[in-house]
């Protein structure tokens, strides 16, 4: 296995069976995959496509029916490999009778981290996930988003080399989603490898370097996001400070005809709903008392 492979699967297969050993479903079929050090890798696919099964096989929560999986060059069944892994499950399955501090202390004790480092890191992580004010409340009283945040904190308590995130933005509001995506990018900048799976394609597109698309347990496609999304048959031009007009359109059509192409559309680009939402929230923070202003006609009562 190459040194910079953090994750490698070889013909990884998982077949679920019933009590009598009869085959129920092939959840994953001969998956061959490698994830390099320092990249953000996204697993995509509809429900039941094998994303979570892949993650659980890598973590040793499930055992492969055939093939094998390696993390940091170690077989997935080896417990010691978990020293370098942080895992955020799809739902934040934590002990709800503990508070945030106790939660991080408990998970921290499971690693070989000196007590003073563990305490310091727990404090930093609680602040990082924005739960400083709520650290004494038991998790039962937390909202779903707060639980997701403390879940992420427990995944980072050991300063892992590989962070596995199963639906990391699940339950988060747009602000939380952006925060999570920024954090994922930050992890990459610190040299960590991130493996995430998500239904939210925009999230994956925003942060992932490479993706794999699974369908019905089979790997359908694999590659760099930029390469996969590129449409080589089309050309995009962007211009600033030019007014849209029939003359402009006619001129452009003439230029493209000259080069053997065809103009498809001329218009203003749109931003994403997420960007619009975040801009409005930022403005609201900056200008307390800001309210929605209806169009001028409505204001005039017409």
């Amino acid at each position: 296995m190459a040194a910079d492979y953090v994750v490698e699967t070889r013909s990884l297969t998982k077949v679920y069976r019933d009590f009598w050993g009869r085959k129920k479903k092939t959840a994953l079929n001969a998956l061959d995959l490698t994830i390099h050090k320092g990249e953000i890798f996204g697993l995509l696919g509809p429900n039941g496509s094998g994303k979570t099964t892949t993650i659980k096989l890598l973590l040793g929560l499930l055992f492969p029916t055939a093939g094998d999986a390696f993390v940091f060059g170690e077989p997935a069944a080896k417990v010691e490999k978990n020293e370098k892994i942080g895992y955020l499950p799809e739902e934040s399955y934590l002990y709800r009778f503990l508070n945030a501090e106790e939660t991080l202390d408990f998970y921290g004790r499971l690693f070989d981290i000196p007590a003073d480092v563990r305490r310091k890191r727990a404090g930093e992580l609680i602040e990082m996930v924005g739960l400083g004010a709520d650290k004494k409340r038991i998790l039962r009283e937390y909202s779903k988003g707060m639980r997701q945040r403390i879940g992420l904190a427990q995944a980072l308590i050991n300063d892992p080399g590989l962070v596995i995130l199963d639906e990391p933005t699940s339950g988060l509001d747009p602000l939380g989603t952006r925060w999570m995506k920024d954090l994922i990018l930050d992890l990459r900048s610190k040299g960590k490898t991130v493996l995430m799976c998500s239904h939210r394609l925009d999230d994956v597109q925003d942060v992932c370097d490479r993706i794999a698309i699974l369908y019905n347990g089979d790997l359908q496609t694999l590659g760099k996001v930029s390469n996969l999304l590129e449409d080589a048959n089309r050309l995009e031009l962007r211009a600033r400070d030019v007014k849209e007009s029939p003359e402009l359109k006619a001129d452009l059509e003439a230029v493209f005809r000259k080069y053997g192409g065809r103009l498809e559309a001329v218009g203003h680009p749109t931003t994403t709903l997420e960007d619009l939402f975040l801009r409005i929230v930022e403005e609201s923070k900056a200008r307390p008392g800001r309210r929605y202003q209806p169009p001028a006609e409505a204001a005039a009562g017409r």
């Binding site: 010691e80 978990n82 499950p89 399955y93």
Partner: peptide
């Protein structure tokens, strides 16, 4: 059943 075990056995816990 609650899957809380997932966050435990994915740590270096025998």
């Amino acid at each position: 059943k609650n899957q809380t075990i997932h966050t435990v056995v994915t740590k270096p816990v025998e």
